[in-house]
């Protein structure tokens, strides 16, 4: 009878990958290697997107050059929701599997998400003034986006208020998961309620109602913002990792390497 060694099954490989992903040292090293590439990609997307959006794209036939605010407003608004989803999913992983790295990603998302939400609100206001004649209206889109900002600030505040960081992470994860109901409300608010805010021009099922020369820079800027999110998230998560694991041996080795 021939005895064969069992080949690593798919689930075995998955477990291996999973544990490496969750390993702090591995994450710290790989993210350090990844960051320069992300910076380069960000620079390319940003320069081409800004040039396309501010220089080559034609002025809007109704809104003139004021429509160019779209190139920072819409990517920021998209990312404000995307970051929330990343935060909530990390929260779920942190709650279910108790993975420390997921906790760190969760808390690192909050200030970045708050920043994007702030940008979306402020640039929206700066766009609303010349187009609608008002800085702000309490309509569904803007109110739900403002609630998103408060959710992010709530996560930041709650996390810093609880001394034990593992307990704080769990509390924050629950808050993030509860707040997820706000995301579809933001997205569909312009369809569900009559509002000043214009409807979707890109993210709808039929053809986008935006000219291709305007659309391409918008997609480039959205890409730039997404890569920026990755950069800022990695930087913050690395800091969180260092802070929590300060006494560990791998941090000691890291410090010695830096000295040498």
């Amino acid at each position: 009878m021939i005895k064969t060694e069992a080949a690593p099954s798919n689930s075995g490989l998955f477990k291996l990958w999973y544990h490496r992903m969750a390993s702090p040292v591995w994450f710290y090293r790989i993210s350090g290697k990844l960051l320069p590439w992300l910076w380069a990609l960000f620079a390319v997307l940003l320069v081409t997107g800004l040039y396309g959006g501010l220089v080559t794209a034609p002025a809007d036939y109704q809104q003139g050059d004021s429509f160019r605010i779209i190139y920072v407003h819409v990517p920021a608004a998209w990312l404000s929701m995307f970051v929330y989803m990343v935060m909530a999913v990390s929260g779920a992983i942190a709650l279910i599997w108790r993975i420390k790295l997921a906790e760190m990603v969760l808390v690192s998302c909050a200030p970045i998400g708050a920043s994007f939400t702030f940008i979306a609100l402020v640039t929206g206001s700066l766009w609303g003034k010349p187009m609608w004649g008002t800085w702000w209206v309490w309509d569904a889109r803007m109110t739900s986006e403002l609630i998103l900002l408060f959710l992010y600030l709530g996560v930041i505040g709650l996390y810093s208020a609880i001394e034990d960081k593992r307990m704080a992470s769990r509390a924050v994860a629950i808050l993030a998961l509860v707040g997820i109901v706000n995301i579809p409300i933001i997205h569909y608010s312009v369809e569900w309620w009559n509002t000043l805010h214009q409807g979707a021009t890109v993210t709808k099922f039929d053809k986008p109602s935006i000219h291709i020369d305007m659309l391409i820079p918008l997609l480039l800027m959205a890409g730039a913002f997404k890569v920026f999110f990755a950069i800022s998230l990695l930087l913050r998560t690395r800091n969180e990792l260092l802070e929590r694991e300060l006494p560990r041996k791998w941090v000691k080795q890291l410090v010695e390497e830096n000295d040498g």
Binding site: G64, D65, S66, R68, V72, H73, V122, T123, L126, W127
Partner: peptide
């Protein structure tokens, strides 16, 4: 910016 300089550039 077609008269919208303040809004576009501050954004």
């Amino acid at each position: 910016m077609g008269g919208y300089a303040l809004y576009v550039w501050s954004s």
